[in-house]
């Protein structure tokens, strides 16, 4: 099929840009390992608390190494369950030292929820039957709001939690 000379130049320029974009994304994903959250583990949505990661004592922030933490969360309408503190009170806020590596893992006992730490790239879907997870390193101190960004029912907009990234003592 005939293509006008200018059109050929335009298409070569356009398609090369697209290829360049894809190479950047591909290198990021497969060489640097920055993939979107895509954890494959499954769980029975009616028996979430029987799973090792989501037992009462494993919920919330756990230190697992010098600079490494795991945060395990059960989402349900309209609340994020981070477990209880030593006195048996519901945890309403967690504090993470700046510079630490954090693995967030979450699942749900009812409908689909969002898991977005506003102002960061921590943003994933939490779906019944699956555990989703995401690794991040916090480089800046500050207070971040964890919000549900997938509609989950009448109280969806009230579903939130506070995460504070603090200076190392």
């Amino acid at each position: 099929m005939h293509l006008h000379k200018y059109e050929r130049i335009w298409l070569i320029f356009g398609i090369s840009s697209l290829v360049l974009f894809l190479v950047v994304l591909g290198v990021g994903a497969f060489y640097k390992g920055t993939q979107p959250p895509s954890h494959l583990a499954t769980v029975d949505p009616t028996k979430v608390e029987e799973h090792e990661a989501f037992r009462e004592e494993n919920l919330g922030l756990r230190k697992v190494g010098e600079n490494d933490y795991i945060v395990s969360v059960i989402a349900s309408a309209f609340n994020y369950n981070f477990g209880k503190d030593d006195e048996g009170n519901t945890i309403r806020k967690i504090e993470i030292p700046v510079g630490s590596n954090v693995l967030f893992q979450a699942t749900t006992t009812d409908v689909i929820h969002g898991f977005q730490l506003a102002g960061t790239n921590v943003n994933m879907m939490v779906e019944p039957g699956y555990i989703n997870s995401l690794k991040t390193t916090f480089k800046k101190t500050g207070t971040y709001t964890l919000i549900c960004n997938e509609y989950c029912g009448t109280g969806h907009h009230l579903m939130a939690f506070e995460v504070e990234v603090i200076d190392n003592e």
């Binding site: 335009w10 356009g14 994903a29 993939q35 979107p36 494959l40 879907m125 779906e127 555990i131 989703n132």
Partner: peptide, 25 residues
Amino acid sequence: TEPGIDPLWKFIQVVLTFMVIIPSL
């Protein structure tokens, strides 16, 4: 951003998504 789908297949569909930009060009 959802669980249960291998990121390789997500990437393959991202490549196909970029193909659909060509007819708009």
